[in-house]
Simulated scan of single mutants.
Amino acid sequence: MTPALPQLTAFLDQAGIDGYLLDADGNDSHQYYLSGYHMLDEFVTLYADERVTLLLPGPECNQAERDSAGDEIRSRAEFRNAAELEDMDPRKARKRVTVDFLDAAGIDSVSVPVSFPVGTADLLREHGIEVVPEYEYVLDEIRAVKDDREIERIRETQRAAEDGMAAAEDLLERATVADGVLHLDGDPLTSERVRDRIERAVLDRGCGLDQCIVASGPAGARAHDPGTGPLQANVPIIIDIFPRNKRTRYFGDMTRTVVKGTPSDRTREWYALVSEASEAALDTVRAGVTGETVHAAVCDVFESAGYPTDRTADDPDSGFPHATGHGVGLDVHEAPYLAQQAGELEAGHVVTVEPGLYEQGTGGVRLEDLVVVTDDGYENVTDYPRDLRVV
């Protein structure tokens, strides 16, 4: 069963609201976190009086009794007796059932995430149930602190990311160079081909990829450009892998920069600075330190070397234009953040540390590890060489 969530209970009590309501499918991270249940279609989860109740289609109830974290499972069929449902579009009727479900639970007011469906909210309000959007992001903050089981699940997924990185490096190492372009088995070695090999490697660990980055040359300097076409020799190739475990639904995340051939002096200089910035950030990470302080440690390194950062320029194209890191869990980007104005880190936060340097039209380098914040520092859950990977 779902453990009581004191922060959420305190928030509801302070706001004078009866419950916290979700209406989403199991791919929604809040839904999965609170219900512990994955279902392709939408369903309702209610947190009230330190208990979690799921409202599901009848055929799902037996499985949810076995697999979910709910304290109670209710079937929609229990609440389909209202006469007004008979002539209603079935899609709207499914939403309307939520009204009777809440009435039966004695719920007159609910707090909902800002992503809550407006159609459901309108129906609830039409029938006298107060719906209050929750802008304090309480559940985001709760999810940000991982327990030992969650950390182990993230660690398991990170092993898949490392396998994917090793598979990518193997392809690059076996490649040959002709006219500045990588070839393997007689064909150009493309970003797409390397991504396909990465995907097969993480699949062997029970994980999947919606996307990953294999970007050489100018593509490496563009934010989240996945890379396309033949890979270039002697220039940095940024490989950023963020798989999701199909069973636990937790993500991993790591980045390395690889050069096939001979890296330029500038590439080596950039990577040395990125490594220095990474170490500066890691030396700062611990509970009680703000994410802004960690980000500042990285910016200090780059700014001292004459490069712009998001602290010295508005939306710089080059230099260090992005945050130092972000939380990882049921989403690949979630709280907390290592960035300007970011708040205090807590033990149990799992964050990336990913400084990089870029120049538009040329390329870039990035180094990313995944760490668990502890009271006196951090634990690095990434077990992969951190040097510039030259193959």
Rank of each mutant, 00 (worst) to 15 (best):
R174L: 10
A281W: 04
G128S: 10
V332N: 02
M1Y: 07
D265M: 03
A93V: 00
L209D: 15
A233F: 04
T262F: 00
D71T: 06
Y33S: 11
P133I: 02
V114R: 09
V258D: 10
S111D: 05
E334H: 03
G26H: 03
G186S: 06
A277E: 04
V177A: 07
K95G: 11
A215M: 00
D253N: 08
Y378T: 11
F251H: 14
P385H: 08
L22M: 13
V332R: 01
N234L: 01
L357V: 06
A93G: 01
L184H: 06
V289I: 08
L182I: 08
V332E: 02
D87V: 03
V353R: 01
E292L: 03
D185Y: 06
L367S: 07
D387P: 06
T45A: 15
P236S: 09
T382S: 14
D140P: 11
R149V: 14
K92L: 13
G363V: 01
D147H: 12
P355S: 13
L12Y: 12
V110G: 10
E50I: 02
I237C: 14
T309K: 00
Y32I: 01
G252H: 01
E334D: 14
E276M: 02
R197V: 04
V235T: 12
A121M: 12
S111R: 00
T382K: 07
L8S: 04
D317I: 01
R96P: 05
A93L: 00
A313V: 14
I238W: 04
F320A: 15
T293Y: 02
A15C: 05
T228L: 06
P321I: 00
D108M: 05
V373A: 05
F302N: 00
R51Y: 05
H183K: 13
G291T: 01
E334F: 02
Q7R: 03
V351M: 05
G164A: 12
A82Y: 10
T98E: 04
R256N: 06
E292R: 07
A48I: 02
A233G: 06
T190N: 08
H224S: 15
L338I: 09
S29R: 07
D41V: 07
S191R: 02
P321S: 03
T53H: 04
R159C: 06
G229S: 03
E86Y: 11
D71E: 10
V132F: 09
E141R: 12
A342N: 07
P263G: 08
R153L: 07
G361D: 12
D225Y: 05
R125A: 15
D170Y: 08
A297C: 05
C61D: 13
T324P: 03
D89F: 05
S75C: 11
A219Q: 11
I107A: 13
L34N: 01
F302A: 00
